[in-house]
Amino acid sequence: MNTYRWNAKDYERNSQAQQKWARELIANLDLRGGEAVLDLGCGDGKVTAEIARLVAGGSVVGIDNSRQMIALAKETYPHSRHPNLSFQVMDASDLSFAECFDVVFSNAVLHWVKNHQPVIEGLYKSLRTGGKILLRMGGKGDAEGIISAIDDVKASREWARYFTGFEFPYTFPGVEEYRALLKESGFSINRVELIPKDMMHDGKSGLEGWIRTTWLPYTGRIPEEKRATFIEEVCSGYLEKVPLAADGQAHVAMVMIEVEAEKIT
């Protein structure tokens, strides 16, 4: 899994949509209050802390491969005030747990990973018998409008030189390929489905904030002094095709894949 230099504070300010969707997903966990939970790709920790409040008699470990994110999470949610919550720097493809958890939760993370096989195998190993995973990530067809807008801009004369040798950085899997992966790793599958989602941002500035803080494989290739111009061009191009709604909101059509499976032996 690639490691990008996240601006953790900026991400925290521009990740309301991700947090809203994570809360929807947490409700599906049906937590009873005593579980040991792994939050895979915990980011700034705010969602992890919400899970920790729901398992007061259990524990939650948040992991992320970004040192900046983990540092912010530890600062915001110190162990002294949140004794059932801890954070570690760890890569999703190289998990070091063995039969530690009852539940693994992951929201909007695993589309960053090219090869999911070591991730799923690591999750299976991390779970106790009877444990379950609930994963949500970008799925087949995700964010096509934004990707098209970015492709248009990065192909232009001004920007093409910064994308020599560029490879598409995300994995947006389909249902059948993910079902096969889960079966191969030993999981009993409860549900794998693609779900269309409408992501909303507060006008053009909110859309720019999302691009700036999460589309790092693209923006990170642009010299810092030119980055804001690149982002503005991407957002202007997108909004020409998908104008702001009457209430000023920017809408982005997303497609998530949701995965529920259990370790039954």
Rank of each mutant, 00 (worst) to 15 (best):
N115M: 00
V109C: 15
H116G: 02
S15D: 13
K197N: 14
L38Y: 04
P243K: 01
R191L: 00
E50M: 15
A253E: 13
G41C: 10
S188P: 01
Y170Q: 08
Y4F: 12
I150S: 10
E167K: 04
S15G: 03
K140N: 03
S188L: 11
G45H: 04
T129E: 12
V103T: 14
D64N: 05
V109F: 03
A56I: 12
I150N: 08
G131L: 05
Q18T: 11
E184D: 04
K197A: 15
K263A: 14
R221M: 13
K154Q: 11
I231H: 00
N28V: 09
V55Q: 13
R128E: 12
P83R: 06
E144Q: 15
E50C: 11
K197V: 15
L95T: 06
K204Q: 15
V192Q: 01
P78A: 02
T171I: 01
S15N: 15
T213V: 06
A27S: 14
Q249K: 09
M199C: 03
L239P: 00
D152R: 15
V192T: 00
K226W: 03
G131I: 01
R23Q: 11
R13Y: 06
G45D: 09
S156V: 05
M90H: 04
H251L: 15
A22L: 02
G139N: 10
